[in-house]
Design a protein around this nucleic acid. Structure first.
Ligand code: FES
Ligand code: FES
Lengths: 147, 147
DNA sequence: ATTAAAATATGATATTTATCATCTTCATTT
DNA sequence: AAATGAAGATGATAAATATCATATTTTAAT
């Protein structure tokens, strides 16, 4: 509805890693199983995040993906931008060439408000900030599996 | 970013027809040229709207697509739902199975409020209501072509 | 050193969405 | 009635996205 599937997966996975806590390495199969997502595809997505240094990884036995304080403090917006690109927040909702206040489409004001709000939320919310509500059972990363 | 391309085209085309006024028939080639959209594809999209009785059409010479008072008064939401389906406003932004207050994802509260706002706007705004601002040069349906 | 278990890189396939093209049907003008 | 110009129906192709699969590299335990 707003993000690509890849981006949804990326958000879920980083929030999942945040929930595991500082420096805890988790292999792709476990992540995929817990979030019930396609493992190989999720793998590809996570590798993009690794390249952007939003997630860390170590190879070999007992390796896996993980976050440290540094990554935990990054904004969710960085995840989104890494996967869906920098300008999904500049696109016109009606597909006009580019969204501007100058030559706006008929839905510009309404769409922009929505878009800017999401942008604001994502840029202010850190990866780590999502953990406590998940742990308290207030919010969820999947409905099928209880974690 | 929110709507499919088909849906963007549908919105543009109906707003375009509204601007032409009551009962004015316009052929697909003209619409497509003025909005600079792919004609055959737009044709397909418009045929869906015709099936949903959101746009009228007549065949044969001097035929074309058009709106009457009846269609002009319908909400933009109907256009959106006809093309992108009834439940794009119920989908979780993070891809959780379904969006509910019961088992919300970590972004639910932030996403839902504004999503509901778009829903509200679209359900209250009629096709006709977009015309005057377009005619006054306040809003636009395309940047390339002046209409 | 060997081995095992993990990420990484890369490519193949499938699915969805968008686009192109062609033929049919219908209404209007002549 | 014939011809024309439009929508309607349908299918083929292309492009983008998502998924599956496999071989390679790296790390760490033994
Ligand atoms: S111009 Fe359409 S959303 Fe800004
Ligand atoms: S549960 Fe995710 S947006 Fe409502």
């Amino acid at each position: 509805m707003f993000f690509s599937k890849s981006c949804e997966y990326a958000l879920k996975a980083t929030m999942y890693l945040a929930k595991q806590g500082d420096n805890k390495r988790v292999g792709i199969k476990v992540i995929a199983r817990d979030l019930n997502l396609p493992a190989d595809y999720l793998n590809k997505v996570l590798q993009i995040l690794v390249k952007h240094k939003l997630v860390l990884s170590s190879k070999g036995r007992y390796g896996g993906f993980y976050l440290t304080k540094n990554e935990l403090n990054k904004s969710l917006l960085k995840i989104v931008k890494a996967i869906d690109g920098k300008d999904i927040f500049n696109r016109c909702g009606m597909g006009i060439e580019n969204c501007s206040g100058e030559k706006p489409c008929p839905l510009h004001n309404d769409i922009k408000a929505y878009r800017d709000n999401i942008l604001f939320v994502l840029s202010n919310k850190s990866v780590a900030s999502t953990t406590s509500q998940i742990n308290n059972g207030v919010t969820f990363l999947s409905k099928k599996v209880q974690m």
